[in-house]
């Protein structure tokens, strides 16, 4: 187990390094001169070259990359062109807002999806099953932002049960987390159902019954843990999806998170902020994947051998 963990953490480094290369190149090879973004087109060539030198943009690309990487390791993500503040400082303010929503969304998703998926599997081909599966189909087909807007309209604007925008209390978190959780739960519930259907035909479930265990124990103790293994495997893939979803919902619910920050920075051509935001978001997704893999190793003892 420990060896597996160490191996996984070791592999993290090349992945993170590759990610910085991609983020760096994406912005530096994009068409357009970054100097235009900083000073606008109507300045003399001398000033332009001056600024180019000041930002180190006249040096060869590999040197620029190493410079970027070196700063990154020191925790320096550059300075915002618009806000004239360190990018790291801005991100430290914004990131918890996004993280909070992603975690809350994922929790709601699992709390809703697992019981529903299990119930549907046990009662397969009954009315309960059909209702669960049709509801989840609706959930899958519904765009996240649209559901967010609807909930916002009904519960915040019409019924005034929740604030329309902002950040801070659980009331601000509730509607966006529900939106994110519901759309994700729709997919997860289907996966739990099919995984559960596969597991309850297995021989060891018959063994569990033959010991005299109650149906509840057979399902909750013997079947569920096995059924969750594929769900956890896919959790890694879905963490990116969840983060993306919460970025979109920050726009709908006017939350001051990373997503909003990125949109504002892109519109204002504040490219150090865009770069820093991308580094942090992708790192979060990579770490999320690591977390999912470790969780997988805890649940499935067979993984330790590989």
């Amino acid at each position: 187990m420990l060896r597996y963990v160490i191996k996984r953490i070791f592999f993290l480094f090349p992945i993170l390094l590759g990610m910085t290369v991609v983020v760096f190149l994406m912005l530096h090879l994009a068409p357009g001169d970054p100097i235009d973004l900083i000073v606008g087109p109507n300045v003399t060539p001398e000033i332009r070259e001056n600024i180019r030198h000041q930002y180190g943009l006249d040096r060869p690309l590999p040197i620029q990359y190493l410079h970027f990487l070196g700063n990154l390791l020191k925790g320096d993500l550059g300075t915002s062109i618009i806000q004239h503040r360190p990018v790291a400082e801005i991100i430290i303010q914004r990131f918890p807002v996004t993280l909070e929503l992603s975690v809350a969304g994922l929790l709601i998703s699992f709390l809703v999806a697992i019981p529903i998926g299990v119930k549907a599997a046990i009662k397969r081909n009954t009315l309960t099953d059909y209702i669960c599966m049709v509801t989840s189909l609706v959930g899958i087909s519904m765009p996240t932002f649209w559901l967010g807007l609807m909930l916002l309209y009904i519960f915040a604007y019409k019924l005034r049960l929740f604030p329309v925008s902002g950040y801070g209390t659980w009331k601000h978190l509730f509607l966006p987390a529900l939106t994110l959780g519901f759309t994700d739960a729709a997919l997860t519930a289907r996966m739990v159902r099919s995984s559960m259907l596969e597991v309850i035909r297995q021989d060891y479930i018959r063994t569990a019954r033959s010991k005299g265990l109650s149906e509840k124990l057979v399902i909750n103790r013997h079947a569920l843990k096995n059924a969750l293994i594929p769900i956890i495997t896919l959790l890694g893939l879905r963490i990116g999806w969840i983060m993306g979803g919460s970025v979109v919902l920050e726009i709908v619910f006017t939350r001051p998170g990373l997503g909003r920050m990125m949109i504002e920075a892109i519109l204002a051509r504040d490219y150090p902020v865009v770069q820093g935001g991308m580094v942090v978001l992708t790192t979060a997704i990579i770490l999320g994947n690591l977390f999912a893999d470790l969780l997988y190793a805890i649940v499935d003892p067979r993984i330790k051998l590989r």
């Binding site: 297995q202 021989d203 060891y204 018959r206 063994t207 569990a208 019954r209 033959s210 010991k211 005299g212 265990l213 109650s214 013997h222 843990k225 096995n226 293994i229 649940v299 499935d300 003892p301 067979r302």
Partner: peptide, 22 residues
């Protein structure tokens, strides 16, 4: 349920799949 596994118990054909892997 009070009889199964207690007064009557059963062994199955497939030892490879009859035990819970987790």
């Amino acid at each position: 349920r009070k009889i199964r596994g207690n007064k009557i118990s059963m062994i199955f054909q497939e030892p490879m799949t009859s035990l819970n892997p987790v």
